[in-house]
Design a protein around this nucleic acid. Structure first.
Lengths: 248, 248
DNA sequence: CCCAGTCGGTTCATTATTTGAACCATTGTT
DNA sequence: AACAATGGTTCAAATAATGAACCGACTGGG
């Protein structure tokens, strides 16, 4: 791997649940020598992509990342443009709706509008969703180029619940449904008791860049409700796509 | 410079005003060979820190940055905690108030609450402020360790207006005032017609991490008003510092 | 109170990666 | 059609990255 790749992989060790990590730990997990890890960290710190807490001497992500992300978000306002549509969809359906952006082989939850109901699905911003096993993921795959899909399906797929689809055939069927109807449906594939409808959001080049998803308690959804949510999801996703590509 | 440093310096070429840049241009500005620049860009793209627009083949900052920034912001919620205080201060003073975070030798504007008045100072999020010549910068220097200050003052300082303080003595005096009173004052040092009061926000280690600043048209400020704004700024900055360090 | 096992950090001879001039193929411009 | 950009590629030469061994400091047992 390139030196740069190693440095970035250090950054990627930090998560929402573990935002500060010590040197030895970082080196171990990245599979690097301590000396190497430290040199890379110092290079990153010089540009404020990494900061070191002076007391504990542990490392954390730096302000430079916030700065760069702000520049990107100003130019590519995915969340900013999509948020109002997501909110509207949440009000219309009365269910929790969340927005995800594709990044590094998975979907990253970047915005959530919670249902007003007491019995609702809770989703956290920052949560990473696999492409299989979630409605969002299936919708994303259905909008992706065939080679991307087959590359993804070749790897062994983790089962998250007893309902997770892991077989290539089952998944191919779900993807075909999503490609035909514009939306995907997943019942308890990622979390027990959660039903989801997903739809893909496309970039200017027609490739999918993210998804939106309506998440309800399974008890509240039958086929008819799902079909209604599906149509609403497709409409919202198309609206966001249009706004992103400057067509509205 | 390390390879990693070169890669990050490529990222730093993107700005709010120029969010997409071509390969040759990037290489030229970073002082790198085209082949080198491309290899670095590819390494960054593999981790989604860079994306390439398929049509124009130009490069832009990638979604991975948004993801990392979100992780950081969740753990180190500078803007999230400070924003309500900034808003309160803007309402109290009736002037534009902005929040800056220190990054890479300068202050980066990360949040703005505009004055409700018709004649007001407008500030853009993302704007980079020098440490000399702005009230924020002086307040930051006054809270910094002596060695940091002298290192900064050694370099030649750019004058932005006829009023910009560039002499070491003048600056030392302004810094001394800020250190004693807790707030700094600058009249038209960065932009004509703008009067600013600044105060530093400290991290858990006592070192300054950012500033807030009250910006008014010069016509609306005399010594008495400035003193009042100064007190309010210090109070707000201390409140943010306390919240950041978990003391409230 | 000492020892073993951490930790963060440093050194320097060895090694592997990065580098860049020259080279295409394409795409506008004049 | 000639020209001057662009993005992208190649491979021997040069440079930067590497990691085992080493500090000193700290921590938690026994």
């Amino acid at each position: 791997m390139s030196t740069v790749g190693k440095a970035v992989s250090l950054l990627e060790l930090f998560t929402l649940h573990e935002p500060e990590i010590g040197l030895s730990d970082l080196a171990r997990r990245a599979g690097l020598d301590k000396a190497t890890a430290r040199r890379l960290l110092m290079a990153l710190a010089a540009h404020r992509l990494i900061e070191q807490e002076p007391r504990s001497r542990r490392y954390r992500l730096g302000a430079g990342l916030s700065r760069l992300a702000r520049i990107r978000d100003a130019h590519f306002p995915f969340v900013r443009l999509a948020a109002p549509v997501i909110r509207e969809l949440a009000l219309e359906t009365g269910e929790t709706v969340h927005l995800s952006e594709f990044s590094a082989g998975a979907l990253l939850t970047v915005h959530v509008e919670l249902s007003a109901k007491a019995n609702r699905v809770n989703v956290d911003v920052g949560q990473v969703l696999p492409l299989h096993g979630t409605a969002s993921g299936i919708a994303f795959l259905a909008a992706s180029r065939l080679e991307v899909v087959s590359a993804y399906l070749e790897k062994p797929l983790q089962a998250f619940t007893a309902h997770t689809m892991t077989g290539p055939d089952t998944l191919a069927k779900a993807i075909a449904f999503a490609a035909a109807s514009g939306y995907s449906r997943s019942s308890q594939g990622y979390e027990e008791g959660v039903h989801s409808i997903g739809a893909a959001i496309l970039g200017a080049d027609g490739q999918p860049i993210g998804t939106l998803s309506i998440a309800s308690p399974v008890s509240r959804v039958d086929d008819k409700v799902a079909a209604g949510q599906g149509e609403a999801a497709v409409r919202a996703a198309r609206l966001i796509t249009a706004r992103l590509t400057g067509e509205a």
